[in-house]
Design a protein around this nucleic acid. Sequence first.
DNA 1: ATAACAATTGACGTTTCGTCAAAATTTATC
DNA 2: GATAAATTTTGACGAAACGTCAATTGTTAT
Lengths: 243, 243
Amino acid sequence: MTKLTRKQREIIARKELILDISAKLIAEQGFSNFGMDRIAELTEYSKGTIYQHFQCKEEVLMHLCIRGLRTWRDFFDRALKLRGNSRERLLAIHLAHHFYAKLYPVEYESIYTVKSAGVREKISPESHAAQNELMKDVIDRVVIVIDEAIENGDLKLPGTMAPQDLVYGFWALHYGELMFETFNFPYRNMGIGDLENNVRLVLRTLLDGLPWEPVSTRHDYTASAERIMREIFPEEAAAIAAR
Amino acid sequence: MTKLTRKQREIIARKELILDISAKLIAEQGFSNFGMDRIAELTEYSKGTIYQHFQCKEEVLMHLCIRGLRTWRDFFDRALKLRGNSRERLLAIHLAHHFYAKLYPVEYESIYTVKSAGVREKISPESHAAQNELMKDVIDRVVIVIDEAIENGDLKLPGTMAPQDLVYGFWALHYGELMFETFNFPYRNMGIGDLENNVRLVLRTLLDGLPWEPVSTRHDYTASAERIMREIFPEEAAAIAAR
DNA sequence: ATAACAATTGACGTTTCGTCAAAATTTATC
DNA sequence: GATAAATTTTGACGAAACGTCAATTGTTAT
């Protein structure tokens, strides 16, 4: 690659700084109190310089989201390193999702904030395209596991069902967790306790019903989850356990 | 009930007018171009009068959402009038959801817009509570069907699974449809065609796997869907068919 | 008819946005 | 190393939208 000048490296570093400070600002003060003047103040650059990097504050959030999606993709890639049966591998993906959501809450929530009414209109089509591309990368990791399972015979989909349909189900089930949680919906009043556990339960039922072998009566997936946390995500599990 | 004065009736009517015009404005110009000055202009009242009704523009959206939720609940109540087996009744709920989402897109999307970062902070706890209450009412209609199915023996949940877990799955699956659709995510590139059909397929697989009788191999639910559209939602089906 | 009360108005102060001409800094040329 | 050209940075500025409130208009009660 061509070598970058000091100036160019500075500019790249500053972009990261802006994103770091934005994430912190949003986490601490909420998105309402997040603005360009504030970013300029905290980064100790002028507003004009901030606008050199991002067209508007919504673009800042979008780029925070995009950076996060790369981290998320990396989490999924790590999950795919697990050696085990195909359902264990999907469980690893499930846990990777969980860890990403917990460890990067601002980035995670930004996925839909940038698509919500009043925000999405202000973001360039190019940025939306970049985000969609990465979302597709993330989802593709799920497709990999499903395809593997079909190939090695663990999973035979019903005639009417394509792999994409199952991906959709997997995705929606996980997305729902985000909805209930970050929207502060009083799901506890509905008798729902721990959401992550809930997603796992519904998912397990869906997979057992297909069936996707080995079904949960013939394999201890709770033990598998513990192994995955130990082998693949020890630091993340510790970080979350430490609150 | 105590009789209302002309003035009081006028005030109630004006509130409705503000909501009607807001829905139209958002539908036509997007949420970015939606503001209090604009509402004042279009309703031909002054800004001060608008603020008499709503504390801020976010509250306008929230009340649009709340009004919509009542309509949604009514849709579900109509669905519950269907005579048929328990899975047909759940299918009626599914279709009611679909019709509401299609016929009231602004209200439907507002459900999460009002909970999204930067918006939710500006809305009063009272309004959030009112929304949550109605959301609960809506979800309770789903619980009714599940409870019925358990009671008459159509459905036996696996030992680990509570009715709430199934409700969560049902809900998340439907919510995902909204996500993919209104967020303009390029799901078609993923090989997913018609989303509504997709939700139905995954749901069917989940229910067949439980199993929730009669399973789809023993009953023609496509025919049931047609019957439901004919008997319960003829006007809505026609309205959507007419684009 | 008049007084007390309630509702309505729109001009106004405030905030945040995004811009742009001027100033400062870096890079290129002699 | 001095000077010119190009680039980057700055913050003051106009625009837009928010929410308020004193003054005005309208309604109800005496």
